[in-house]
Amino acid sequence: MWSHWFDGLARNRQLIRYDERGYGLSDWTSAGTSVEDWIADLDAVADAIGLDRFPLLGVSQGGAVALAYAALRPERISRLILAGAYGKGRLVRAADDMERDAAAVDMDVARVGWLTQDRSFLRFFASQFQADAPPEQWDEFVALQRQTTSTENGVRFLEALARIDVSDLAHRVRCPTLIIHSRGDQRVPVAEATELASLVPDNRLVLLDSRNHLLTASEPAWPVFVHHVNSFLAE
Rank of each mutant, 00 (worst) to 15 (best):
E152F: 12
E152Y: 09
G154H: 03
R156E: 11
R156M: 12
L158P: 00
A160F: 06
A160G: 04
A162T: 00
V166E: 12
S167D: 07
S167H: 03
D168S: 15
L169G: 00
L169N: 01
V173Y: 03
R174V: 14
I180W: 10
I180V: 13
H181L: 02
S182E: 01
S182T: 02
R183N: 06
R183Y: 07
D185W: 11
Q186F: 04
Q186V: 00
V188C: 06
V188T: 13
V190K: 08
V190N: 02
A191E: 13
A193F: 11
T194G: 08
T194K: 10
T194L: 02
T194V: 13
E195M: 15
A197E: 07
A197F: 08
L199A: 05
L199P: 04
V200F: 07
D202P: 00
N203Y: 05
N203L: 07
V206Q: 05
L207V: 13
L208F: 08
D209Y: 02
D209R: 01
S210M: 00
S210T: 06
S210N: 06
R211K: 14
N212K: 00
H213I: 10
L214S: 10
L215N: 11
T216W: 00
T216M: 12
A217Q: 14
A217G: 07
A217K: 15
A221H: 05
W222R: 12
W222K: 13
